[in-house]
């Protein structure tokens, strides 16, 4: 069916293979080949952050990553991250960080990374970390609260 070589990489802790064109977007591979539709396409050009995933532990935009560059690497999507950090999911739900939910998966991935890197991030640091994730519903306040509430 295709002459593309098989690309092997790790997705959410499992070895996966994909024999799409290496130029294919990681986002399309995740959504349409692996059925991991948690990563959303809000713009397709790296502006909105709804497709954020972790690549070797770093938040990246899966709409801008050619799947060929993932060979041998580790990808984590919101589906796995939400399982790893149920407290974040709970906080986002309770503080009003979620409305329509279309930006939420990307925001969860970014906030997870921020919590790992800087558990006591100030509001300014949260703003900076989230600058690549557009939200149109919440005015961001509910999202800030998800990290700030309970800081003490």
């Amino acid at each position: 069916m295709t002459d593309h070589p098989t690309l092997a990489f790790e997705v959410n802790g499992e070895a996966r293979e994909c024999n799409a064109s290496p130029e294919m977007r990681l986002l399309d591979c995740l959504r349409y080949d692996f059925g991991l539709t948690g990563s959303k396409e809000g713009c397709g050009e790296g502006e909105c952050g709804a497709c954020t995933v972790l690549l070797d532990g770093q938040p990246v935009l899966s709409c801008l990553v050619p799947v060929g560059q993932c060979a041998g690497r580790r990808v984590e999507t919101v589906e796995a991250i939400a399982e790893k950090d149920p407290e974040l999911v709970e906080r986002m739900t309770e503080t009003g960080g979620i409305q329509c939910g279309a930006c939420t998966p990307g925001i969860v991935v970014t906030l997870y990374s921020l919590r790992q890197a800087n558990p006591e991030a100030s509001r300014e640091e949260i703003r900076r970390a989230l600058a690549g994730n557009l939200c149109r519903c919440t005015g961001y306040e509910g999202i800030f609260r998800a990290l700030e509430d309970g800081h003490g």
């Binding site: 790296g46 954020t52 938040p59 690549g132």
Partner: peptide, 9 residues
């Protein structure tokens, strides 16, 4: 340059 995700790439 861009946001965090862009700077990572």
């Amino acid at each position: 340059v861009g946001g965090w995700q862009i700077q990572n790439r």
